[in-house]
């Protein structure tokens, strides 16, 4: 009847193992990504996201094996992000079984990379990760939005305006934007709804809200107030605070159309 709002668990992966840290530091090792992916698949997740968080610094060969083993078991869309620099990186991930790739630092450093990637593989598989932080009150710039783009897991400020960056990336061929508030990531106090909405209203492609989910109401807010097409969360699912089923039920009760194939069909 209607397109469903997607619920996407994200697994942060380092050296082939799942981790999730508060504000991208203080990592806690918590499991095998393939096992987690299979569990999320069975629980009715709408997509899966792997973020190879240390990929910018270390060898990333392990992720190809994780992706290949996941794709052999999970018949749902799989997005992989982290450390993607070249068209060849994308090709290797797609050939391993990823459906989409999420690009952050490389898109900031070389925006033309998004044109090349989208021309080569199609807009539908190019997700640009918009990692943004609020500017300090005394650092607001006339004619720019309140948010600035960060790279390298929130460590490096770029001075680039987040809204302008989002619009430019879509023009260059991004098929979807993964919008993460680097202020909120890992805090469990909810998405930066103003940021999510500002970007969602500025572009015609779907926006995935990310960063800060601590309660099921936060997911609802991301859709209703942030106007996100999809909501992404990591720790609340990974540490078992809530199940995918509970999250979807809560969203459905709040009037959001979600896919409940697993629930309805047993």
């Amino acid at each position: 009847m209607t397109l469903k709002t997607r619920l996407i668990p994200c697994l942060d992966v380092k050296d082939g193992r799942v981790v999730k840290g508060v504000n991208f530091v203080d990592l806690v090792d918590a499991g095998d990504p393939v096992e987690s992916a299979i569990a999320y698949d069975a629980a009715g997740a709408d997509e899966l996201c792997f973020l190879d968080i240390t990929a910018s610094h270390e060898g990333r060969e392990t992720i190809y094996d994780v992706v290949a083993r996941t794709a052999a078991h999970c018949f749902m869309p799989l997005t992989v992000g982290g450390g993607i620099r070249t068209v060849e990186d994308i090709r290797k991930l797609l050939l391993s079984g990823a459906d989409k790739v999420s690009i952050n630092s490389a898109a900031v450093k070389d925006p033309d990379f998004i044109n090349r990637a989208a021309d080569k593989f199609g807009n539908q598989c190019i997700v640009v990760s918009v990692d943004a932080k609020r500017r300090a009150e005394d650092a607001l710039v006339e004619g720019q939005s309140k948010w600035e783009i960060y790279t390298h897991g929130g460590r490096n400020a770029t001075g680039i305006d987040a809204i302008e960056f989002a619009k430019d990336m879509v023009k260059r061929g991004a098929g979807e934007l993964l919008v993460t508030s680097m202020d909120r990531d890992g805090t469990k106090i909810g998405f930066d709804l103003e940021l999510t909405r500002a970007i969602s209203d500025a572009v015609e492609v779907p926006v995935i809200a990310s960063g800060g989910v601590g309660t099921l109401d936060h997911l609802v807010d991301g859709v209703n107030e942030g106007r996100a097409s999809a909501v992404l969360a990591a720790s609340i699912f990974h540490f078992g605070t809530y199940s995918i089923g509970e999250a979807k039920q809560h969203m459905a009760q709040s009037g959001i159309a979600v896919r409940q194939d697993n629930v309805a069909k047993g």
Partner: peptide
């Protein structure tokens, strides 16, 4: 509505087909 149409949606059958007979589709 965003374009692309991206995500999960239900199907409405408009003509009979043997491959669709036992498929759980519809609203």
């Amino acid at each position: 509505l965003k374009v692309p149409h991206m995500g999960w949606n239900t199907l409405t059958q408009t003509n009979p087909h043997p491959m669709l007979d036992d498929l759980d589709i519809g609203p």
